[in-house]
Design a protein around this nucleic acid. Structure first.
Lengths: 104, 104
DNA sequence: CGGTATCCCTCGGGATACTG
DNA sequence: CAGTATCCCGAGGGATACCG
């Protein structure tokens, strides 16, 4: 408590958490797509060229778990599900765009 | 080569480039550390608990290649090398900090 | 001191088949 | 339609030894 403890936990970098929220091959693109409005599973599968059910499924779950996307289920046949940006997700859009400007 | 090869290039998401600049286990922490001023290799190795020469070496090279860090060599014995934030790197600091605020 | 070369192992992510 | 289960492979990253 008094001084230099050697704590192995590596929370030295808070931004890591957010970086992780968008890490991986498909999450950035899904997040980008979500800014256009609600989207359905098969719709994403079609748009994300080169992806597959498994990968999209995992990415969506992770985005949901980190609170960026929300899932709305319409229990009818055929099943209809929509993924939309949460308020937290919307709050990230400006930053997301700022990132682009720094790219070059 | 006029043939239309099936290149799956997917540049649909510009922010991906920047996300990639800070992706990986050590780059975020190194970038954070660099905000405190110039740093040396062995210094980083000491501070980044659980890392090793190889990983730090690769991370530094990638940060350098993406233009966030610059390398200054003093060719004397013993070798002395300093890594510092570039102007581009400095420009990213505010965003980096904004990211933290959105984490929760 | 400041790295690279090499080996190895885990984990992210692709393909396919099956399910509610 | 919207997923999960399973298998498999390549890349990321750790450990260690060697080099300028």
């Amino acid at each position: 408590m008094t001084t230099n403890e050697v704590i192995e936990v590596n929370n030295s970098c808070p931004a890591e958490a957010l970086l992780k929220m968008l890490s991986g091959k498909w999450k950035p693109q899904i997040f980008l797509r979500s800014q256009q409005g609600p989207m359905r599973f098969s719709e994403l599968l079609r748009d994300l060229k080169g992806s597959n059910k498994q990968s999209v499924s995992v990415a969506l779950r992770e985005l949901e778990e980190s609170g960026l996307l929300s899932k709305a289920t319409i229990t009818q046949k055929p099943l209809h599900i929509e993924y939309s940006l949460t308020e937290k997700g919307k709050a990230m859009i400006p930053i997301f765009h700022t990132l682009e400007l720094l790219t070059d």
